[in-house]
Write a protein that binds this DNA or RNA. Structure first.
Lengths: 247, 247
DNA sequence: CGTTTTCTTTGATCTGAGTCAATTTCTAGG
DNA sequence: CCTAGAAATTGACTCAGATCAAAGAAAACG
């Protein structure tokens, strides 16, 4: 069996929760590239490969010239941007299978800081050359177009649900979103690490961290979720779903 | 001078506020297509052309198969989605130069209703064939990729600013966003039609319509804006900007 | 042109979530 | 294992913005 970019590099047990390539957001492109075995991958240096990222390490910083998209293989990341008044704000969380850096395509620079929340690994796609014409790139471009379209759909859903909902609804939606994304990516759907801090969640959802804490406690008391350390168990997804659609 | 898709079709005075092609969100593609004069436009039936849309008419409905992207030439539109509980929610407003329908690229169907708020006109791009391989499509694909990247950037900015802000900040940001978009598209920046209802704005910003009304009144009293009928005048953009960055 | 309907404004009241403050629990480092 | 610092929880209080209600202004329509 050929060693491709998609096979574990003999890492420790911690990387057990890793998306399969078929479940990854980069799959449309990887598929075209033959999962690292295709010519394009090495010879034309579009270069996808697995990279380990340490907890706390940055994938990129705001202002840094755009050079690649990343797909998370394992672990998780948060995106933080600093507004004009100097205040940090979490603007997104990324789980295995998610695509990071798409805003750089049009911006030419990355627009926020992306930091690993735990020991993680990513695949890197140097997508720049897809923006300039070459040969045999059409399939790749079509794949990228679909991926961006997908990203737009997801962003739209997230935004509209968050903006209109109260604290409980936002948090229920957030939990379900993590759960579904985990399931979609071929990982356990109802038991997953909540690797970000309460403050991060609060910042992301536009709430106070005390509110996040209170609502999580309430959800536990009602038996909707279980929470031990940073391991989240989704006990009653139907009821959580119902919470998000109330009103 | 050749009659292209970008020249007015002898419409009435109402279409005076029309974006130039250079200022339009579709420009990267139109540029490649030679603004309707290029072969691709007619012979390969990618087909861009101006279409008048009546006030209240729909561009598309949710569930309808994706067949084209639209760029607004003149007028304005709102996007409304119906959630599970049957409640309508405005999920976006579109001004001249904006791109409509991108979520259909990955979804294969449109995901909300887009309705004209006034007498409007659009350009249509049947982008489907860019997703399948042909010849000479690489430039078009690269252009589309950039446009989608741009859309992602803008969505991200909108989301993060809205979610974290209070009522006054959301409304100030909303007004500035309209103003800037109008200016960017080569139209008057500080005097523009507020063609949507207060309810629509409220729904979009996640506020009650009474709150929108109150804040607009307050902004008028403080001389930040002028509002007569549905004509908005931005009198003090610096102060509005300051409002959005407070806290 | 008056009538109806819809949209907008304004006021009064109530409540969800923010803020402040005090513990308690986790985590990392020695 | 103990300790210091960070993160999370819980309670008390406050206020921004929702809701309820009613009047006023625009738009639509015969």
């Amino acid at each position: 069996m050929v060693q491709s970019c998609c096979e574990p590099t003999g890492a420790d047990d911690k990387t057990a929760l890793e998306v399969a390539c078929r479940d990854c957001g980069l799959d449309p492109l990887c598929d075209v590239l033959g999962y690292g075995k295709h010519d394009l991958c090495e010879t034309e240096a579009i270069l996808m490969r697995r990279q380990p990222i340490q907890r706390g390490a940055l994938l990129f910083r705001p202002g840094q010239p755009f050079f690649a998209l990343f797909a998370i293989k394992s672990g998780s990341f948060k995106a933080v941007s600093v507004d004009l008044s100097g205040k940090e704000r979490v603007v997104g969380f990324f789980l295995p299978g998610d695509l990071i850096g798409t805003e750089g395509i049009a911006n030419h620079v990355y627009s926020y800081t992306v930091r690993a929340l735990e020991e993680s690994s990513v695949c890197k796609l140097e997508v720049n050359r897809l923006l300039h014409c070459g040969q045999d790139t059409e399939k790749l471009q079509a794949a990228l177009i679909r991926m961006l379209g997908q990203e737009i759909v997801v962003n739209h859903l997230v935004t509209t649900s968050l903006i209109q909902q109260n604290a409980e609804q936002r948090i229920a939606a957030f939990i379900l979103s993590l759960s579904k994304r985990s399931g979609l990516r071929g990982m356990p759907q109802y038991q997953l690490p909540l690797s970000m801090s309460r403050s991060d969640i609060a910042s992301y959802l536009g709430l106070a961290r005390e509110t996040v804490s209170r609502v999580l406690t309430k959800f536990q008391n009602f038996g909707l979720i279980g929470l031990r350390k940073h391991m989240l168990r989704v006990l009653n997804p139907e009821e959580l779903e119902r919470v998000t659609t109330l009103r």
